[in-house]
């Protein structure tokens, strides 16, 4: 069976980061880096970005408009109950809108996270290697016809990999 991925295994964060730099310098593209905790330098090196904050902001606006719409419809259009001559479109809406904006944004942000990550009950881990959720770091590189596997293995070993495997 043809192997499609190379795993460079590291046991220290510093070595992982310096290895990523060396690999990048050679122009080899890294498909993934796995670590037991978030390493911010890796985010920078891989130039990773996320649009979750933009999505969350839009969910917030959606929550605001729907809640206001619902409150206006129920209290002003659908059943305009008169209480003490006060206006039906009241300021107390603000409190419900405030809470519902939080409600909608939290729920939808979470759903978005799971959807883009393709994670949920029963989802299988995309990478399996002993210790990656404990004290090991992985650099995953896809093997293409152009990949010089030997040179890559040497580069990984030289930069401090404790093990190299192919899967």
């Amino acid at each position: 069976m043809n192997k499609s991925k190379i795993f460079g295994v590291f046991d220290q964060e510093e070595k992982l980061v310096s290895s990523i730099r060396s690999i990048k310098a050679k122009g080899i593209s890294i498909s993934d880096v796995v670590s037991p905790y978030p390493v911010h330098e890796v985010f920078e090196e891989l130039n990773l970005k996320t649009r979750i904050p933009v999505a969350a902001f839009l969910y917030g606006i959606f929550g605001l408009l729907t809640t206001f719409g619902f409150l206006y419809w129920t209290s002003v259009v659908n059943y305009p109950l008169v209480f003490g001559g006060k206006p039906q479109n009241t300021l107390s809406f603000v409190i419900i809108i405030f809470v519902m904006v939080i409600n909608v944004t939290v729920a939808f942000t979470l759903i978005t996270f799971f959807l883009i990550e393709k994670k949920g009950p029963g989802a299988k881990p995309s990478v399996e290697y002993p210790g990656i959720s404990d004290n090991r770091y992985l650099i995953v590189i896809d093997i293409t016809p152009e990949t010089d596997v030997k040179a890559l293995n040497k580069l990984l070993m030289d930069t401090g990999a404790v093990e190299i495997t192919e899967q």
């Binding site: 880096v33 670590s35 990773l48 939080i102 994670k119």
Partner: peptide
């Protein structure tokens, strides 16, 4: 949920957590 700990997941995880945290604090 099939968690692996890839860098992309961590970035999204941290971002989602801080947004949820920031929103829940006023709550």
């Amino acid at each position: 949920f099939g968690w692996v700990g890839s860098a992309r997941s961590w970035l999204r995880f941290e971002t989602a957590a801080i947004i949820m945290g920031g929103l829940t604090a006023p709550l």
